[in-house]
Structures are given as structure tokens and as C-alpha cells.
Amino acid sequence: MRQGEVAPKGSWIGNPTGGVSAPEAVILPDPARRFLRTAARLEALSAGHPMAEWLGFMALLARAQHGAATALGPVAGPAPEAVRQAVEARMPPLAADGHRRDPAWRLTLRFLLDGFDASAVPAPVRDVIANLRDRDAAALEALADDFLTGGVAPADVGAALYVAAALQVYFSRLAADLPVEALRLLPERGLCPCCGSTPVAGIVTASGATPGARYLHCSLCATAWNHARAVCITCGQSRSLAQRGIDGDSGAVKAETCDECHSYAKMLYQAQDTQVDAVADDLASLGLDVLVAEAGWLRHAPNPLLLVG
């Protein structure tokens, strides 16, 4: 693992007609493309990968998420006045731990479970799916609450994987319909301005109006929001950041470590690979997590599909 690399400094990008281009503060998800892109990236990354079978399974799950996101009917989101009040209070309008969920999210879960070919998954997975099908609405809502508050019981971790995937679809669809012009970044910049969840990874852009800008990608609703580079997303310090990677790889995925709070977060670089995807590349780079953890840093926040899987 490469160590001691200085975190790259962010800077504003000039445009051809003069002046400075500011990055968009918030980019809402596109549910019609978000999960399909992750599935395709997982399939590409699985070729020759030591965890090819598992990545292939996660690609199947992402394709089922895509099917749910594009096939199900609309979901009622918060009223414009409720969004305005939340933003004025510097709160996320879809706060994951306080949002009153529409029962439609359970239809998403059912769609995901129906999307798996029983003959294509191992017997333990079939057992988990059968168990979920047998749970009533109250039990499913309780499991969703446990997932969103970080209190999943060990016996439920398998079932919670599918609940997490369904909630990702549900919250992505809600976030996509928010009025982006009304949203504001939260005081705690490392949290999603739409649902208040932690990011799964950051992506440093290589194209568009502001190449070099860093966007954090929400682990729940897939919203992306601009965050200053060379600043720890956990504690806000910049004195002791470093970029750490695995020798000999493409350099597209790195761990940004902070010696102030002893945390790290995954950062993806489009300049090294234009196809990077926050969820897929995070799942495919678990070897980097192991190396960084062994060196003494704790991850800023887990990927929900790893937390319960």
C-alpha cells in the first residue's frame, strides 16, 4: 500500500470566457440510471476478480433494484412546505431516521425478492428470501427501522440486506423528486443534504464544468453533494490527510486517511477511470479496506450493503 501521499489540493476552475465556475452544490439521483450503472460496473469489475461470484451476485441485486426503480408507480414525497421548513431548520427533508415511510417501499422489497431466479442463488439466499416473504408488514417496518438506526440484530443481517436494497430504491425515488433549487448543504458537510445519511464514497470529477470537484455520494438515496477537497469529511481537519492506495493498481480508488480523527473514506478518481461508480467500486475494493484497517484507521461509515451482508 502506498503511504505518505499528500492529499491533492482542490481549486476553482476558470472557464474560457473568463471568471470562475462554481460546482453544483447538490446533484439529485436519476433512479432510471443509477442502479443500472452500478450493475454494469459490478459486472465489468467482477471479471478476473478474486470475489467474482459475490460481485456477480451484487450485480444481480443492482439489476433487481433497477427493475423496481423503473417499473413501480410514483411514491408520494414530502409537501413543498415541509421541504422548505426542513431546509430552513438546516435539516434534511427526507431524514432517514425520522421520515414517515410510505408503505410503497414494501412493494419495492417484494419486487426485489420476485426478481431473483431461485435456481440461480445459493440455498441460504433462498431461505432468507422465503423468511422475508413470511414476515408481516409490522415485522418488515421494524426491520427497516432497525436498519436505518443501525440496530440490526445478528440474526437479521441476511434479511436486512434486501431491506437495505429496497430502501435505497425508495429513498432514491423520493430524492429525485425534490426541488433541487430549494436544497442546501447541511452544517455537517459530511452528511447527505436530502436524507442525512453518510456517503458511501467520494468521486473526484474529470470532466464537466468543474473538473477536479469532489462529490460525496449518499449511501442511501444516491444524492451527490459537493465537498471541499483536502478536508477530512469526518472531522473537517486538513492538517494530516494522506491518500493511500494499493501498489500496482490503476489509482482510481484510494483511501483518504486522517491522523486527526483516525478515520478514512474511499475516494474515486475519474481521471484514472471514467467509469468509476461509488457503490460498485467500493464493493470491489475491499482489499484496500483491509489494508487501511490493519494500519489503524477506521472507516468513516460503512457501505450499507456491507454493513448487513
Rank of each mutant, 00 (worst) to 15 (best):
A22G: 02
A182W: 14
V200A: 01
P122R: 04
S11V: 15
A96I: 08
R100T: 07
I27M: 02
R173V: 13
A95F: 13
P154V: 00
L28E: 03
N131K: 11
L112T: 02
L183T: 14
C232W: 01
C232T: 05
V6Q: 12
L291K: 06
A242N: 09
L60R: 10
I129M: 13
G296K: 09
C218T: 02
R189V: 08
A142L: 09
R229G: 14
A39T: 04
T223I: 03
S219K: 02
L94A: 01
D136H: 08
Y269G: 00
E188D: 09
L283N: 09
G48L: 12
G98D: 05
I129D: 01
A52E: 15
R63D: 10
Q272G: 08
D102F: 11
P23V: 05
A32R: 09
V308T: 04
S11N: 15
L45W: 02
R229Y: 06
N15W: 14
E188L: 14
G19P: 09
R63Q: 08
Y269N: 05
G202W: 03
L174W: 12
L286H: 04
F147Q: 03
K266P: 05
L140V: 14
A271W: 13
L216Y: 10
V290I: 15
Q3R: 14
P80K: 01
P193S: 02
A96F: 04
A159C: 10
V180K: 05
G73S: 15
D145R: 11
E256D: 13
E256S: 06
D145P: 08
L167G: 01
A71N: 12
L298T: 15
I246W: 01
R33A: 15
N226S: 10
D134R: 10
C218Q: 00
A25L: 14
V279M: 13
R135C: 14
G196K: 04
R84G: 00
S219Q: 07
R84T: 03
F57T: 01
L143H: 11
L288V: 02
T70R: 04
A142P: 12
P154E: 01
R173Q: 12
L268R: 00
V292M: 11
